[in-house]
Design a protein around this nucleic acid. Structure first.
Length: 256
DNA sequence: ATGCCGTGGAAACCACGA
């Protein structure tokens, strides 16, 4: 079974790229972020014609998350993290597919830091961490995936010294990620490739992709019940080089 | 070192992203 995550940066502008990638790689489950579309403008028919059922949490202009399934039925569990009824940003969507719980997330960017946006990021991170502990306590197969907007270590940044004051790499953000993982999650890419330079995002400008000036910010966190079934993981790097690409590349895992 | 690019929405610029 292949599960993928892809920050599309606008699902309507990205539709040709998304459909081509779905056709070429045929993941069974897909988490999408940054739809940048209200619910009624999600290209539902095109996704269905590509062979996928879909659920989504849209929002005008910004954010937006969706889960696609090629064959299995999905049951939506929640469309927001618990803990803040005031937070109306569409950044989390959770579903069960068979015995698997899949959480699709778009963690706030947090820049500029320090400031209110960074405070929001850290609060959101705390809510995610509390909810993740609840998910783990069930002992069932759980996957948390999406755009975490965190480079966990220096290995995940093309030039770490340039990013130390950035909201994606500040020490307290890396610490928050470590605290989350230390609950008992497995970072799928790092389990299989502990020392390799692997990026999932390259800026649009300064020829970042050609220079491989990238970041690893899209992650798969696996509960123990999923981690022992992990058979593969990777980044569909070539998609980043396609015409009209997102600034992120799709990331995927396979489980037995 | 830096939104230099890209997207969306409103308005022919601005917010936002990482």
């Amino acid at each position: 079974m292949k599960i993928a995550t892809y920050n599309v940066n606008g699902i309507n502008s990205r539709l040709p790229v998304l459909l081509r990638w779905l056709e070429e790689t045929a993941p069974d489950l897909v988490c999408l972020q940054e739809l940048k579309s209200p619910a009624e403008k999600i290209p539902e028919e095109a996704i269905r014609n590509a062979g996928y059922k879909a659920i989504w949490h849209g929002q005008k202009s910004w954010n937006g998350v969706a889960i696609l399934s090629r064959q299995q039925e999905m049951t939506e569990i929640r469309r927001a993290l618990p803990g803040d009824a005031e937070d109306v940003n569409s950044r989390y969507l959770e579903a069960t597919i068979g015995d698997l719980t899949l959480g699709c997330l778009y963690l706030p960017n947090g820049n500029p830091a320090p400031g209110p946006k960074f405070d929001y990021k850290m609060k959101w991170f705390e809510r995610l961490t509390r909810h993740a502990a609840d998910l783990l306590s069930a002992g069932t197969p759980v996957i948390l995936t999406g755009d975490f907007n965190v480079m966990p270590t220096e290995l995940d940044v093309y030039k770490p010294e340039r990013w130390v004051d950035d909201a994606l790499f500040r020490p307290e953000v890396r610490e928050a990620f470590r605290t989350l993982v230390d609950q008992g999650w497995t970072d799928a890419i790092r389990k299989l490739y502990p020392r390799e330079t692997i990026y999932t995002f390259w800026d649009y400008f300064r020829n970042a992709f050609d220079r491989n000036a990238g970041l690893r910010i899209d992650h798969f966190l696996l509960s123990p019940a999923v981690s022992k079934r992990l058979t593969g993981a990777g980044v569909d790097r070539a998609v980043r080089g396609w015409e009209k690409s997102s600034d992120h590349a799709p990331v995927w895992i396979t489980i037995s």
